[in-house]
Design a protein around this nucleic acid. Structure first.
Length: 505
RNA sequence: GCUCCCGUCAUCUAGCGGUCCAGGAUACCGGCCUUUCAAGCCGGCGGCGCGGGUUCGAAUCCCGUCGGGAGCACCA
């Protein structure tokens, strides 16, 4: 029984979206669960793209989520290289061998001709796939096409009859009729190879034995299976590997089994894409979602353990995750639930850890230095317990506590209009006086002093606390007042209360 | 058009013939608490797409139907 080897093989797009992240996670979990290996491969066959930068976004997102890879970019490994753009010699050799063995053939139609053929087929209600026009060309015909200046593509000859079946780990038995599967291109006219070929070659060459990917590739599977047969027949792939000095396949390599995950859809039930707004992992990071929550939530998008358990640590996920418990229908990416889970997780964080996780966000908001100054650190630590119940994402802390870090109060006009009126002037005057007299500057004493003001003026807490809150925070919303004031410098508090008295209308 | 996949509360799901007049979570609504905002606690609303079978018994099995999605590229 060979050890489980899974992979994640995105095209480098510069950023990792949540659908890709989930695919990566399921493969990572499947590998970790079995103590297997997780391979990270970059599929840039088509790319005149910026390989380095666009790969960087992927790599960073994977690292943020904690999805480490045993083989792949930056770590390399025994079956590389792990970028398809560095494996072109292999692919060329494989295509040549395929041609020679007869599994593939060269076809000379131009893209325009194919498009016309496709349109005609659609019009007449026939399947739009390749009709097989150049399946059996003679050498004379080939020469004639070449003389016209045509450049051939290479296609795989699919069987005309019979069917292919396989057992999907998630869906069970699936079957396709070969008659429905047209001859497909493995090498373009410019000599580059397509996904089908590169993917099949690499999965085999790297000994990948479990492939979990999106359901959109379910109907591509027969082609993959056919390629595996062709590649394995007469050791075609092994010879290509050896002849071109690529590492051989693992000794116990077996062709992969498949597990097709349901699609992840947006609020409109359409497959997730850029137009759904923030679907990039990095965007969720910026909004203040914790990586362990993202992992937990993504795992739950399609997978479940039992009727009631929803919270899992990463180790628990590794322990419990199996592909056969992945569901079959599309899952909606429900950010409301994500938020709730994130908020729950924040409540579990200790003061020091929450303060530490908050620091980069407040730094980005221009409120805290990097690293935090001792005074800022003290505030962060003191604010952490007050913030914990009030935020669902780390970025939400900023508007609540910005006034603690700023020199000047930024007043919310609506709050001023609502709370700095009527007897607010009396309240502020009295508050300034009693707070100046408070012995020990702590929450308990401050609360007592403010309650005294309320009693003296025969007002409720609401009528006394709100004017003070607006005076100090500039807003009608803040963490609990006495606790927050206690964290601030007394003179600063008094000065703000004094200054606000002129605003009372 | 053809092929394949899918269909339990608004959402994510548990459910693999009786223990389900369907359980949990999120969202929503109401109450309590209350110095703002939250949090917390209590309570509530709400679902097996439809139609036939099979069976003593079906959310669970079969057939059909409707609906949704994907694929049919010199994109991955």
């Amino acid at each position: 029984m060979p050890v489980t080897r899974t992979r994640f093989c995105p095209a480098p797009s510069g950023w990792l979206h949540v659908g890709g992240a989930r695919a990566a996670l399921y493969n990572w979990l499947a590998a970790r669960h079995d103590n297997g290996a997780f391979v990270f491969r970059i599929e840039d066959t088509d790319a005149e793209r910026v390989t380095d930068e666009s790969m960087q976004g992927m790599v960073e997102a994977m690292r943020f989520l904690g999805l480490d890879w045993d083989e792949g970019p930056e770590v390399e490994g025994p079956h590389g290289p792990y970028r398809q753009s560095e494996r072109t010699a292999l692919y060329a050799a494989v295509v040549a061998a395929l041609l020679k063995a007869g599994g593939a053939y060269d076809a000379y139609e131009t893209p325009a001709e194919l498009a016309a053929e496709r349109e005609a087929a659609q019009r007449e209600g026939r399947p739009p796939g390749y009709g097989g026009g150049h399946r059996n060309l003679t050498d004379e015909q080939r020469e004639a096409f070449l003389a016209e200046g045509r450049e051939p593509v290479v296609r795989i000859r699919t069987p005309d009859e019979g069917s292919v079946g396989f057992t999907d780990l998630i869906r069970g038995p699936v079957e396709f009729a070969w008659a429905d599967i047209a001859d497909f291109v493995v090498q373009r006219a410019d000599g580059s190879v397509t996904y089908y070929l590169a993917n099949a070659v690499d999965d085999l060459a790297m000994g990948i034995n479990v492939v979990s990917r999106g359901e959109d590739l379910l109907s591509a599977t027969p082609r993959q299976l056919l390629l595996y047969n062709l590649l394995l027949a007469d050791d075609l792939l092994d010879r290509a590997l050896a002849d071109n000095a690529y590492p051989g396949r693992p000794a116990d390599a077996v062709p992969p089994v498949f597990a097709h995950q349901p699609l992840l859809v947006g609020e409109d039930r359409k497959p997730l894409s850029k137009r759904h707004g923030s679907v990039a992992i990095d965007e969720f990071r910026r909004q203040g979602f914790l990586p362990e929550v993202l992992v937990n939530f993504l795992a739950l998008c399609g997978w479940s353990y039992d009727a009631t358990t929803e919270r899992f640590t990463v180790d628990e996920l590794i322990d419990r995750f199996t592909l056969d418990r992945v569901g079959r229908h599309p899952a909606l990416f429900d950010t409301a639930k994500l938020r709730a889970m994130n908020g729950d997780r924040i409540k579990e964080l200790g003061d020091a850890e929450l303060a530490e996780r908050l620091q980069p966000y407040l730094h980005d908001a221009g409120l805290v230095d990097e690293p935090a100054l001792p005074e800022q650190q003290r505030l962060l630590l003191g604010l952490a317990p007050l913030l914990r119940e009030r935020i669902q994402t780390l970025a939400e802390a900023e508007p609540l506590v910005a006034f603690c870090f700023r020199d000047d109060v930024v007043f919310d006009e609506a709050a001023v209009a609502k709370h700095l009126k009527g007897r607010a002037g009396d309240v502020l005057q009295a508050a300034e006086r009693v707070l100046a007299d408070v012995g020990e500057w702590n929450a308990e004493a401050i609360l007592g002093a403010l309650d005294g003001v309320a009693a003296d003026l025969e007002l409720g807490r609401g009528k006394t606390f709100q004017p003070v809150r607006v005076a100090v925070a500039g807003s009608a919303v803040s963490p609990p007042l006495p606790e927050t004031l206690a964290l601030l410098d007394r003179e600063l508090v008094l000065a703000r209360i004094r200054a606000a008295q002129s605003l009372v209308g």
